[in-house]
Design a protein around this nucleic acid. Structure first.
Lengths: 250, 250
DNA sequence: CTGACACACTAATATATGTTTCGCATTGAT
DNA sequence: ATCAATGCGAAACATATATTAGTGTGTCAG
């Protein structure tokens, strides 16, 4: 298996082979966690940082009426904020959504890593900033985008995030979520997620079956939701010209 | 004027008088910026960190249809992420909402400050983490809270944030926003903000007039929106018992 | 093979919020 | 004093999404 952790941090730039080796050693002691299991709960003291090597995890909170609200998604290569131990207690929970391979990194190990490896520290810092930008973009989507665009936007974001770690074939990737999961991410009801999926399908933008998402026309999907990848802070992987062309078609 | 910057970072704990002096020197060269002026624009390279000493500023983005979406609020004492210069370019803009006193801190000065003053570095780090938690809480509110609760939640949050820097009398503070501003923060239309304000007023929870918000019954307001201040990571300033009592009334 | 269960799908209805439109008050400039 | 600009208040209407209530389908334990 490719080391998604290295792939992810490499996007920040500046890592050399020694750093790669360090990261490889760090992520060698992994552990399997079954789907739908809490890794950390709101209120816990945080002593370890979690790194996801395979599968999907999420940050969530349970609201008074018992509804779950997912405030962030962790795809392979992602890890939770190593600075969290500065805070008294977690203000949200983290749980696996699918079976996951995770690495538990003790707080001290993480701090030492950052102290001793300036280039890795830089990359980790970059990753944290991107995570913040993603959260803001989700906020914006829920605040101002209609459900179909919002979902299309999520699919575009995941395409880029998964591509960055080598987990998306040209226009297709595993999307092992139930419609309820999607609802909790998008701030919708499962029923409406179903309707919106039908809508996107009938527009010929996507096909979602057997837990795989196929994007039929990337440029049109991007245009449909006015997706601007700048907040992911990566070298653009997307064919801008064809995107702009499709923009005008709308 | 009290130094709100010091008050704010003090909430992280651990600062001594020397640190206070350092921070005082840092924030001595301030500058007046009129209301509704951009400090940084999306796409800019970030060379300076902004610190707000008085007034309100916000992080925002303009969406395709020209709508503004506010993804974060800066109250006196707040500053933008000092690590931002790691990224290639800003993914959002920052603008004043009222007349503001701001301090521009060059990137290098900020890094040196953090290198040389471990306790300040710790406090800055704490502040960044809290900012992230606030963004997540806004996301959750927009996703799952109804407009009246969402607005009440914002009012509770601001009460605590302003109290922390000494800018809220027991149950009253300056709220110098237009209804349009509130709409852009809450993901609503200005018209609906008007309706919701009327609703909160008619419930006897708040009075908003002449740009000041008065909270008539703090415990009831907290109960009304199930406000849980844990995400602000401060020593609770709120009378928990009376809050829980009011919770049961609902 | 069977029941239990989770999940996908659909329809009918309800409601929170958006849209459009208008009037009024305040403020500041001329 | 007059006027435009801005913000607040409100009504009528439109619509995106939620709610409620169900049907069908695949999977898995027994």
């Amino acid at each position: 298996m490719v080391n998604v952790f290295i792939r992810k941090l490499d996007a920040a730039g500046g890592l050399n082979e020694t750093d790669h080796e360090t990261l490889r050693r760090l992520s060698s002691h992994d552990r399997l966690v079954p789907a739908r299991q809490d890794l950390i709960r709101e209120g816990d003291r945080t002593e370890t940082v979690y790194l996801v090597l395979s599968g999907f995890a999420c940050c969530y909170k349970i609201l008074p009426r018992g509804r779950r609200c997912i405030s962030g998604l962790m795809v392979p290569g992602d890890f939770c904020d190593p600075r969290a131990s500065i805070l008294d207690e977690m203000d949200h929970s983290i749980a696996t959504m699918t079976d996951c391979t995770v690495v538990e990194i003790p707080r001290q190990t993480m701090w030492r890593l950052i102290e001793d490896h300036p280039r890795i520290a830089h990359a980790v810092c970059w990753s944290m900033l991107v995570d913040g930008a993603v959260t803001r973009e989700w906020l914006i989507g829920i605040a101002r985008r209609l459900a179909p665009e919002r979902m299309a936007h999520l699919f575009c974001e995941l395409l880029l995030r998964l591509r960055a770690v080598g987990l998306a074939a040209s226009n297709e990737y595993a999307l092992p979520f139930t419609q309820s999961d999607l609802a909790d991410m998008l701030g919708l009801t499962p029923i409406h997620v179903n309707r919106v999926l039908r809508d996107l399908r009938s527009r010929g933008l996507i096909v979602l079956s057997r837990r795989r998402l196929r994007i039929l026309d990337e440029a049109r999907l991007i245009a449909f939701c006015s997706f601007n990848p700048n907040y992911l802070h990566r070298i653009p992987v997307i064919d801008r010209i064809s995107t702009e062309k499709a923009m005008n078609d709308y």
